[in-house]
């Protein structure tokens, strides 16, 4: 079976800085894969390359077996990729429910003309999408705020609405860019459990995460990068013990045990 995501020597430079340097990794289908690395390691650039907001200078990115290296974001979205953003990017002026309905754009199953004419089929489809959107809000625990202007919600709540919005597109691969930033430990664990539920339903997830406890508890495998390069991959607990990873996160002189204590 082809992996859901495959990077083959993907490289991206901004001027003289190589943000992603011949990075190769594979995200297996039906798993939660963690993407770790200290600040400035190039994680967000990787996410932007995968979603098509940036394009590789060289190398190849394949989603579900299809080369998407030169594709536009909306084509990659149509191939089954959905994402969230490091600093929540919800749409100002829309309610939580409207955000998720907008996220279902790819599943509208209605031509622009039919939608404009409000044909019975188009209205029926729109009702179905609203119901599904409400269900998705329920899944992330936000159904009670469906009709609330999303920008008035707390940061953690907005993150959950953003996840529901990404799920609206029925993706095959979900990219979560620091999904628990700004959340307390209980809320973070809730997000972790949600990723497991989604995984068990067949969704593949690639998660950029700083919260090591979350990575250890909920990622099936991790990829660690630093300065745009892969420095470790494998099971989360082993990766965290890897001397290269320790060095990247805590500097050279530290002893392993100190590092582990620091990550809690």
């Amino acid at each position: 079976m082809t992996p859901i995501l495959e990077l083959d020597r993907a490289t991206k430079a901004f001027g003289g800085v190589t943000a992603v340097d011949a990075l190769s990794f594979v995200a297996p289908r039906g798993q939660v894969t963690g993407l770790m690395g200290p600040n400035g390691a190039g994680k967000t650039t990787v996410i932007n390359l995968i979603s098509g907001l940036l394009h590789v200078d060289s190398g190849r990115i394949a989603l579900n077996g299809t080369d998407v290296s030169a594709q536009k974001p909306h084509h990659i979205g149509a191939l089954g990729l959905a994402r969230t953003y490091q600093n929540v990017r919800l749409i100002s002026g829309l309610t939580a429910l409207e955000q998720v309905v907008a996220g279902s754009f790819l599943k509208r199953d209605t031509s622009m003309l039919a939608s404009f004419l409000h044909t019975p089929a188009a209205r029926h489809r729109m009702r179905a999408i609203r119901e599904k959107a409400l269900h998705l809000l329920d899944r992330v625990g936000m159904a009670h705020s469906a009709d609330v202007l999303a920008e008035t919600l707390s940061y953690g709540e907005q993150r959950r609405v953003e996840i529901a919005r990404a799920l609206g597109a029925d993706p095959v691969l979900l990219l979560l860019d620091e999904p628990t930033a700004g959340m307390n430990p209980a809320e973070s664990a809730e997000i972790g459990r949600l990723t497991h539920k989604l995984r068990d339903e067949g969704l593949s997830i690639l998660m950029v995460e700083h919260n090591m406890k979350l990575v250890v508890d909920f990622c099936d495998s991790v990829i660690v990068m630093n300065f745009g390069r892969l420095i470790a991959r494998g099971a989360p607990t082993e990766c965290i013990r890897d001397p290269h990873v320790q060095e990247a996160y805590f500097g050279k002189q530290r002893h392993d045990a100190d590092g582990l204590r620091a990550v809690g």
Binding site: G52, L53, K72, H74, G77, R89, G103, F105, A169
Partner: peptide
């Protein structure tokens, strides 16, 4: 960017 990633052409 968000619109494009949502699949909006």
């Amino acid at each position: 960017s968000v619109a494009a990633c949502m699949g909006v052409d």
